[in-house]
C-alpha cells in the first residue's frame, strides 16, 4: 500500500488518494504478479506476501522490464521465511522475461 501512497503529497488537511490493496489487484487473482507467484509457489508462511506482491506490482507499473538492480532497489519488504530468490524469479516472469 505504501508503494502507491509514496507518489502523492499531503496538501493541507484534505487529500484525495486512490489506494489499491491486494484484493483490488485483480478480481480473479490473475494479475501477472499473482500468476507468477503461483507458478513458483513463492509464499511460505505468506504473512508478508501481500506486501511483496503489491511492491512487485507497483515496480512493474513503473518499470515493465526491471533489471535485477531495479528489483533490488524496489523490493525492500522484509521476508523472514527468506523467499527472496523465488520473488526475484517471479518478478522476472511477471515482466515477461525468459526464466
Amino acid at each position: 500500500m505504501r508503494r502507491l501512497l509514496g507518489a502523492h503529497q499531503w496538501r493541507g488537511d484534505a487529500v484525495l488518494l486512490k489506494i489499491v490493496t491486494i484484493e483490488g489487484l485483480s478480481p480473479t487473482a490473475s494479475h501477472p504478479v499473482q500468476l507468477a507467484w503461483a507458478v513458483f509457489d513463492v509464499p511460505q508462511c505468506g504473512y508478508r506476501q501481500s506486501g511483496q506482491i503489491m511492491a512487485a506490482a507497483a515496480l512493474l507499473a513503473k518499470k515493465p522490464k526491471p533489471t535485477d538492480e531495479d528489483i533490488d532497489a524496489a523490493m525492500t519488504n522484509i521476508c523472514r521465511c527468506g523467499t527472496y530468490q523465488r520473488i526475484r524469479t517471479a518478478v522476472h516472469m511477471a515482466a515477461g522475461d525468459k526464466i
Partner: peptide, 16 residues
Amino acid sequence: LKRLDTAPKLNGSKVY
C-alpha cells in the same frame, strides 16, 4: 508438487 495452501496467500484472503 505445488503446495496446497498457496492461493489464499496471493489475494489477501488468508486469515492469520
